[in-house]
Amino acid sequence: MRSGRPFHRDSLTAFALLVPVVVYLAAFIGFPFVMSFIYSISNATIGDPHFSITGLNNFREMFHDAAFRTSLANTFIFTFVSIALVIVLAHILAELLIRDFPGKWIARFLLMLPWTTPIALGTIGFLWFMDSVYSPFDWLLRKLGLLGSPGDLFGPMSNLYWLARPGLAMASVILVHVWRLLPLATVILIAGLNAIPREIVEAAQIDGAGYFRRLFHITLPLLFPVIGVTVLFSVFFTFTDMTVVWILTRGGPPPHATQVLASLAFLKSIQGGDLAQGAAISLFFFPVLAGIAAIVLRLVKKAVVV
């Protein structure tokens, strides 16, 4: 190590190798994070470069804002319904895809496709599928005789108006988000299922356990660390995501039927110009997510057995 190389000391090399990532983290995560702290206790707006510190005013205002409370409730509904669906569906898919069947390769390939698509493009596709007039979903329902005439299951109107009715709009947003998260969650669970020794499952089979007992007493407990990490990632993705909501509904139908905190923060700070309010809303995530992360990681650590 003491040859004529440019970095003849290990510590210097280590430092040089670390610099890019430290600079990156400081510039793109550290700096905005500090700025949002400062903004959240100020009266900063887009129009005026000058601002002064105003204390916790923004947070007080935020809690009194009906839009914030609606968005908060929506965020929880959006997050927990999506994740519950993702975990259940991903587990079913993973169970199916670890079996051997003809066409397994193509099935896995198709499953992974949504993940490889840029999320914005995929969502725009769904925007067209859910168009108020030309929706192919509606067309299919009409052809099946479920929509469009009096007495049909989904009513006499010619269209369902996926994104225009509050409940259905939320369901649509959740559907697209599940479509997007499912591939990753499935792949993680496939890896988790493959890591469970086959002999353990067979031992349970011989010990007399039927499918559901094996699922709840053997497979799920052993998968728990993997599911925990999957849930953690999904919660972060979902809590902080606004792409799906923004492209499909822009938080509507009005006033805020599908508004989530991330889209509300964007609406207030970028579109509305109120940087201070936006910063306060986005900072609201921070303790919530930190808390969730701490709880999940603790549970996972407890569950790790080998």
Binding site: E199, I200, A203, I206, L222, V305
Partner: peptide, 18 residues
Amino acid sequence: PRKRGIAMVFQSYALYPH
């Protein structure tokens, strides 16, 4: 398997680790 009245000891023992 569970209705055959058999028991098996596996090479890896296959104990339930949790």
